[in-house]
Design a protein around this nucleic acid. Structure first.
Lengths: 158, 158
DNA sequence: TCGGCTATGGACATTGTTGTCTATTGACAT
DNA sequence: ATGTCAATAGACAACAATGTCCATAGCCGA
């Protein structure tokens, strides 16, 4: 029960540790039966994240409307929307882990496509790729690979 | 002369601050006349990076064979190879800023394509995009916007 | 040969992120 | 009503990344 998965040994610069924790918890909730409430402690155990810290992360997710938390006996957390409507970018923003994409990597105060710094094109490509990923990926992808959420506006059967 | 560009206000999780500093300095060297030596102090001023810290970063780049540093009067730093042969991935590795791409974002000890964790596909896409970027982008792109580096096996002049 | 210049190297300070602890608040069961 | 359970909230500690400082080693010009 208290299996304690290994936690993030080295921080990986692509995503902050906090962001990774948030995604782990949300993924765990996404693959659970829809209306099930999962306690903070259990989420921590399943995801290998320190209890107290995860608690803080979950709070942020609640305050940003991604999770619903209920107190008392039988309480716990559950997704506040269908998985298909929770984009990774929403998660990252909720835990303050979105890169400052406007900033010039070269340090220039003003840097744009028309007046680019030397690093501009390379930096722009990286940012674009990341943004694309964060915007198009949702928690629905986590559930068995099929879309369980309201992502596609057509009929999503499976 | 001591113009002091603005430095990284907020750290952006995509690239560590140190990695960004390294890229700034290398870009500055890449756009300078080929054989010119630039002093650490001048590089710091031009890139807006704290002198002493940049010095440490430059040392790493030297020890990894990306830069050549010469002491004494008239000394300074210069690229150790043609810009087209310095890939961003080389830079990131030199300053220990490459994400641990093997690690499972979900925390699973064993996680592979055949036995994937819920986050695996999404995580794999992000990693792949980043790796692709780091491997194919070289300092040559920084100079004037021309040739994307020594990737093309044809003649790369300039 | 001498003196200043510049990179090199390591010790140390600072800061933000991560992680821990102790209350308080609200909900459910009895 | 009461006690227990679990989320909420904020203060505090540990740690790694960032930033600063000072001494040493090698190079150049005079």
């Amino acid at each position: 029960m208290t299996r304690s998965l290994p936690q993030a040994d080295r921080p990986l610069p692509l995503l902050s540790t906090t962001a990774e924790y948030a995604l782990r918890a949300l993924a765990e909730l996404a693959i659970a039966p829809p209306a099930e409430q999962i306690r903070s402690v259990d989420l921590a155990a399943r995801t290998g994240v320190p209890e107290a810290y995860l608690s803080k992360v979950l709070r942020k997710l609640v305050s940003h409307g991604l999770l619903h938390g209920s107190k008392g006996h039988g309480g716990g957390f559950s997704l506040a929307k269908p998985a298909g409507r929770i984009r990774f970018i929403d998660v990252l923003e909720a835990v303050d882990s979105m890169p400052a994409t406007e900033r010039c990597a070269f340090g220039r105060p003003r840097c744009s496509t028309t007046n680019p710094c030397p690093l501009h094109p390379a930096w722009a490509r990286l940012k674009h790729g990341f943004l694309e990923w964060a915007q198009t990926t949702t928690l629905a992808e986590v559930t068995g690979g099929a879309a369980r959420g309201g992502s596609s506006r057509k009929s999503d059967r499976t």
